[in-house]
Nucleic acid binder design. Sequence first.
DNA 1: ATGGTGGGCTACCCA
Length: 259
Amino acid sequence: MRIATFNINGVKARIDTLLGWLSASRPDVALLQEIKSVDEAFPRGAIEDLGYRVETHGQKGFNGVAILSRLPLTDVLRGLPGGEGDEHARWIEATVTGTRPVRVAGLYLPNGNPAPGPKFDYKLSWMERMRMRAAALLATEDPVVMAGDYNVIPQAEDAARPEAWVTDALYRPESRAAFRRILHLGYTDAFRARVPGPGHYSFWDYQAGAWERNNGIRIDHLLLSPQAADLLADTGIERALRGQEKPSDHVPVWVELDA
DNA sequence: ATGGTGGGCTACCCA
């Protein structure tokens, strides 16, 4: 079972890119972020025509997440638990069954800039809520994959120019510590577990020629529970998509599980 | 140090 995460930065603006990627790459499961669409306006028909089941958790104008799956999809949960009054559409879960069931969560973690400030406070409180949910998922002892745009640069080697990010909410010590607190529950950063060293990025800003200069950061992650990590067969970043026509500022990151 | 780009949407917000 191959599971990919892709922040598409607007499903309507990116529909040709999305359909082209799904057709060429054929992930079994695709977790999308920043669909920037309400559920009723999501272009599900064209995606279903490619053989995918579609579950969305959208809102008007920004945020929004979705799960696309060629495999049976059950027990969908929309919204990160524990957020009284939080209307942001940033979390969706479902169980995907290949040769065995895998609990999959797609997430769009708050950006948090400017920091400090209320947006940074929201990011950190959202991460604490995520930690609680991550602990509850671990307790099931099922294979769990939590994948998406984490808006966290875990280590200096995950940025081409780490010195440019020191005051940014994506790299501040509080954000990285909160990310580590989730990892330390028992999750594995799938890409980093298999590919050591610098130079591996999933996001390049549209501005200032970031792509042409390879001024990237690695902020799209797939975290695996121990039961999922035991099934990990391969991982990769589809960086070539960033150089294609009308790209998202993110590219897909994927894992192959023996499941 | 500043400004640079892009999506959603109609006055600016978000990244």
